[in-house]
């Protein structure tokens, strides 16, 4: 079972919701795929047992072997290579490289381009009491989080267990990548015009991918804009978390919602049971 927690907009409480779900679900794994800004660890305080560097392959040109024909530079659509034939020089810009392998493929000289590892981020694994914890994180300035997300989804998720995935915010590629294999998507939003506008984009993605989804309204002030929209698109509202300065204060101190506000714990237990019962494969 793979439950993805997503939100069109950042700061709606995606991490509060996903950590709460993970804490109340039995034998679950919390997976932080908000790889640009993974924050779940702040609330869950896991003991990190393993830290694995995540590498991508980048070309290394051997200037003793290279004939400076320039085919690699022409092939690179990302403009990561520059060849200066008359001076027999090569330049490579790792921050532009997408690790596609095109340069290596077109190189006519055996051994002129070797592929080497470049670390772009880290995967951390550990435990927070009973809860298993996995986190992907990319280094500052790395272009895309998609490779590390897809690596974690394809290699670290045990689909026989309950996995709560904290996805990237927004509605672009990384989100699609992190919800692709999910069984259910929880969309977290807030009842402001901003929240609604972003929710609409997120719903469109979920629908395009043919995923089942439900909405959690965070910072509920009693405004009904989300209720009206949810009814229109026929998506259930699973839960409302009231707007309270207490919730924000506990978050700012790094205390998970279900520990700070005990009555929320019961609601989250109910919610996770319901989702597993209605969508679980086993």
């Amino acid at each position: 079972m793979f439950i993805a927690v997503a939100s069109g907009k950042g700061g709606t409480g995606k991490t509060i919701v996903s950590t709460s779900l993970a804490l109340v679900a039995k034998n679950s794994t919390y997976i932080d795929l908000d790889v640009e800004e993974p924050n779940g660890y702040i609330l869950l305080k896991p003991e990190i047992e393993k830290e694995i560097p995540f590498n991508l392959k980048i070309p290394k040109i051997d200037e003793h072997v290279c004939t400076f024909c320039g085919k690699c530079a022409d092939a690179c659509v990302y403009n990561a290579i520059s060849i200066i034939p008359n001076l027999k020089k090569t330049l490579f810009y790792p921050d532009l490289c997408h690790s596609c392998g095109h340069c290596t493929y077109v190189c006519p000289v055996n051994g002129a381009i070797k592929e080497v590892d470049r670390e772009i981020g880290k995967i951390r694994m550990g435990k927070s009491k009973e809860l298993k914890f996995i986190e992907g994180r990319i280094d500052v300035g790395v272009i895309s989080g998609v490779p590390i997300i897809s690596w974690i989804v394809n290699n670290y998720i045990d689909f026989n267990e309950i996995n709560i995935v904290d996805s990237s915010p927004g509605t672009s590629c990384p989100v699609v990548e992190s919800v692709k294999k999910s069984d259910y998507i929880i969309l977290v939003t807030e009842p402001t015009p901003f929240g609604l506008s972003d929710l609409k984009l997120a719903v469109e993605i979920a629908k395009n991918m043919g995923k089942k989804a439900g909405i959690i309204v965070n910072k509920d002030t009693g405004i009904k804009n989300i209720d009206v929209y949810a009814k229109e698109v026929n998506i259930p509202i699973l839960l409302k978390i009231p707007y309270s300065i207490e919730v924000q204060k506990s978050y700012s101190k790094g205390i998970p919602l279900v520990e700070a506000i005990p009555e929320m714990k019961g609601k989250f237990v109910e919610l996770i049971d319901k989702i597993i019962c209605e969508n679980g494969k086993n």
């Binding site: 924050n39 300035g141 700012s252």
Partner: peptide, 20 residues
């Protein structure tokens, strides 16, 4: 930024970028 732990850790990451 906001005075939450995540706010601070994100602030540091953004500042790294603007410094760069």
């Amino acid at each position: 930024t906001e005075p939450s732990f995540s706010g601070i850790s994100d602030l540091k990451r953004v500042l790294k970028l603007t410094e760069h």
